[in-house]
Design a protein around this nucleic acid. Sequence first.
RNA 1: GGAGAGUUGGCUGAGUGGUCGAAAGCGCCUCCCUGCUAAGGAGGUAUACGGGUAACUGUAUCGAGGGUUCGAAUCCCUCACUCUCCGCCA
Length: 415
Amino acid sequence: MIDINFLRAEPEKVRDLLKIKNYDLKIDLFRDIDSERKTLQVLVEDLKGQKNNLSKEFGELKKNNQDTSELSNQLKEIKKRLEEKEDSLNTILSGLRDFLLDIPNIPHKDVEPGSSEEDNKVIRTFGDIQKKDSIDHLDISSDIDIESAVKIAGSRFAVLNNDIAKLHRALISFMLDIAEKNGYEERYVPYIANSKSLVGTGQLPKFEDDLFKVSDDLYLIPTAEVPLTNLFADSLLEKDSLPAKVTSHTPCFRSEAGSYGKDTRGLIRQHQFEKVEIVQVVHPEKSDEALEDLLSNAEEVLQLLELPYQVVQLCGGDLGFSSSKTYDIEVWLPSQNKYREISSCSNFTDFQSRRSKIRLNDDGHKVHPHTLNGSALAVGRTLIALIENLYDEKELILIPKPLQKYLNKEVIKVK
RNA sequence: GGAGAGUUGGCUGAGUGGUCGAAAGCGCCUCCCUGCUAAGGAGGUAUACGGGUAACUGUAUCGAGGGUUCGAAUCCCUCACUCUCCGCCA
């Protein structure tokens, strides 16, 4: 949620800043709602004040055994008006809330305009692209079993067998250990979250269609960002507890509504996938450097695995709803002959902390700290990248040295 | 699933219909005293949202939501959560 006071003070500025994100802020609508809110709020609070005062008088009269009938009538009158006006106020307030919850985060000053992925800027690359046009992971290993998954749950799921399942599991431990080495505390968290948490991190109310709903108010998490960030919800953090750095491995569940026909083959886009997420909560002045730090933590995983990748900075049009600045890490996939997203590292500034009521005691001033997160990394896509990049074209996948001890193997035989 | 107890400010914890935004303690801040990493004394110290240039001031908040009442932290109902016991269970 953006700061309503900023919006009140400089609506044109906010509107212009959001244009870069292709969001059309309705300033006039906001002004109308907010001024009606103000009128009604002043009126309602005044009526309540009158009611409180008269009730006190009423008590006095009662105590002295005096006649209360006149006061009683006045009170009835006020209560009637109050009820009406309060209803109107509540309607306005919930409208205002909906309006505010719909507004995306303001992009960072570094963010450049652009309408889509095409306009993202490559920041750096790592490693050499060794192979092109090779066969894809499904053709390399028959231990990725899509058909069985279809039988169990339908499309966009997978069953992994034997060494591929173990490699998948090894990657998770490997990534968690790197995160721990980099100062993130490990957490085991719920894989289901309530709507309040999802509103806090920004998935709701706008993107309900992307989620799997399991009951009235509960959803499968689309990312560990939700539980990890909400660990801090409704709390007042002390300055010396920052930066707070946490990590978790979780499955992630995404309905992938609207992506029909996209990435239908293989593990690239699944309803369920594993991810190791890293989250930081930092002092507002430290989030720029924290994002670079977090990004480097994610890159480290790919470097150790010797997988070629590039880092891109997202342009305004490609930036997520809650993010002010995002770097994507894209790993090279030989079968697709291109780089594909394997991590997304974002600075959410105070957007999430305002929604989740995360506060920081900054020398007596209560401020909203900044939250950041990134994948380090998406496990399924890392698995694909490993298989495709490290397949020796014979029947072996060559396991990178740092990963070997997690697997107790130097190579995996395939087919 | 059954029975009971609870949920109060940054923390601990009192408060069973108005004088309660709420005792007391802890913590924190300011000052005083003390020449020494201590002790003591005085005062201050919730949050959110409004109105006002400001001093200041209004409203709301005692788990959440409803109800009773002129008036609710306090009474009633529903729900959530915590704890204890029983049952069940990985």
